[in-house]
């Protein structure tokens, strides 16, 4: 465990909690892509099957269980409890355009052709693109509430810190996970445009982020 990893995990947790609290307190999930949240729940569900096969540490188990529970809680709030506020008309990203290539790629490029390894690879590739319905929704409506942008900021920060973590681990532990690193870098690139808007519009300006 290095400082980048820990800070990355904390950022990830903060992002998820920000989103959950925003929905819970405002009793509304307006502006939130339910599709992205379902994809994240799918990411955690397929990746953390290793809870049953490998024991790494207590920290590892606790965090995985927490991420799973929080992601399902978020999906529950959006599609069940506060579904009246769910903006399905603007959450129109075609998820199959992500799922089909991701499923195909995870069969082609993996560490072992076994169900668990293919599902693990699937979760890595899917995580890289799972935020796209949310970014698409913001582009479509042309605006995002500041709290939604804080959520995206912490999610992007988590990815950036994981890259620093991989650089550290490569030098210190000789560890290099090609699948995770390549898709992690791709994923981080998706956030760059958003980071720019976040700094120039949200931090320096008003509450909402509106696109030009």
């Amino acid at each position: 465990m290095n400082i980048f990893r820990l800070a990355g995990d904390v950022s990830h947790l903060v992002a998820i909690i920000i989103l959950l609290l925003k929905i819970w307190r405002s009793k509304s999930c307006a502006g939130i892509s339910g599709k992205s949240q379902v994809l994240f729940a799918l990411v955690f569900s397929t990746r953390y099957l290793d809870l049953f096969t490998v024991f790494v540490s207590v920290y590892n188990v606790v965090m995985k269980v927490v991420f799973l529970a929080l992601s399902y809680a978020t999906v529950y709030l959006i599609y069940m409890r506060f579904r009246n506020s769910y903006d399905s008309e603007n959450d129109t990203f075609r998820v199959e355009f992500l799922l089909v290539p991701v499923i195909g790629l995870s069969f082609l490029e993996n560490y072992a052709f076994t169900p668990l390894e293919i599902l693990w690879t699937f979760s890595i590739f899917l995580e890289a693109v799972a935020i796209m319905p949310q970014l698409f929704m913001i582009t479509k409506t042309g605006e995002a509430e500041s709290i939604t942008t804080h959520y995206l900021f912490f999610l992007g920060l988590y990815r950036a810190l994981y890259i620093a973590n991989w650089v550290w681990r490569y030098h210190m532990e000789g560890f290099f996970d090609q699948i995770a690193v390549v898709s992690g870098v791709v994923q981080t690139i998706f956030y760059c445009d958003f980071f720019y808007l976040y700094v120039t519009r949200v931090l320096r300006g008003k509450g909402k982020m509106s696109l030009p």
């Binding site: 990893r5 995990d9 990830h12 290793d50 490998v54 790494v56 540490s57 590892n60 965090m63 995985k64 991420f67 994981y162 973590n165 681990r169 532990e173 560890f175 996970d177 995770a180």
Partner: peptide, 10 residues
């Protein structure tokens, strides 16, 4: 022990 390190990450 690359396998364990890989499953260590979240």
């Amino acid at each position: 022990n690359q396998e364990l390190l890989r499953h260590d990450e979240l």
